[in-house]
């Protein structure tokens, strides 16, 4: 998927990117918590042109019984792209991509939620992508974390989804659509902002060790910025008194 389009220009002569951002500049991010009245917890995240909504239901009895774990809760994550979220309409329903993203997102969340507090139960996390423009798995993880916190589910930390990548041989923070399509690498991470751990990690393309280190540095910097917005969204929601 990465590379192979060497003739597409993604950097301006002055070193800025096509949308005017500096190489270490993130797209604008807006976060709201407590946006869905019937859910136990919810969040809305706009990251650049991406829009994700997450809802949390539970903890509830785990059904069917075979998915129950005697010592902990299971986290049931569904990442779904709305049919109208992309340029060409997507056929509704699960596909291989959404199944994989759901799986790794669930595993990331299981590493921060205090699942041992709720044996034999299930926590449902629903991630709906309403507009997709590169980086939706990361936006989904950020939204899911805020929704879990909004639902009052105890967690060691939240997870911030961020990505860096490489375009025209230059490491850049937060790829947009064109950069994702025609760039050379993509490194999405789920970072625990308080402990500095990684709960989610994927990569594709081509990165040298030095480039990886720089991309990683960009990701951590962006994660701490997004973390502030996540906390503020939860404070705003709590002070409104709803959710």
């Amino acid at each position: 998927m990465m590379g192979g389009y060497g003739d597409i220009k993604l950097l301006n002569d002055d070193g800025t990117r096509l949308d005017g951002r500096a190489v270490d500049e993130m797209r604008s991010v807006e976060i709201k918590a407590g946006v869905l009245p019937v859910a136990d917890g919810s969040a809305w995240v706009k990251h650049g042109l991406n829009v994700a909504v997450a809802a949390v239901y539970g903890p509830m009895e785990a059904h069917p019984r075979k998915i129950q774990r005697q010592d902990r809760a299971v986290i049931d994550v569904r990442y779904n792209m709305a049919p109208f979220s992309t340029s060409d309409r997507i056929r509704p329903g699960f596909n291989r991509r959404s199944r994989e993203i759901s799986k790794v997102t669930a595993e990331a969340l299981e590493s921060v939620v205090l699942v041992e507090r709720y044996p034999r139960s299930k926590i449902r996390v629903e991630i709906e992508i309403l507009a997709a423009e590169a980086g939706t798995r990361c936006v989904g993880i950020t939204a899911a974390s805020v929704a879990l916190a909004d639902a009052g589910i105890p967690m060691r930390d939240m997870i911030v989804g961020v990505a860096s990548g490489k375009i025209e041989g230059v490491v850049v923070l937060d790829l947009d659509k064109a950069e994702d399509n025609y760039g050379q690498a993509d490194l999405p991470m789920g970072i625990l902002p308080n402990t500095g751990e990684m709960a989610f990690l994927q990569m594709d393309g081509d990165l040298s060790i030095e480039e990886y280190n720089l991309a990683c540095e960009y990701n951590y910097k962006a994660a701490s910025e997004i973390h502030e917005l996540m906390k503020q969204a939860l404070l705003d929601s709590a002070s409104r008194g709803d959710a």
């Binding site: 869905l36 019937v38 239901y57 049919p83 709906e128």
Partner: peptide
């Protein structure tokens, strides 16, 4: 016209 009552909308 397609409609989806996805699990996000209600428990």
């Amino acid at each position: 016209t397609g409609a989806e009552l996805r699990p996000v909308a209600h428990r």
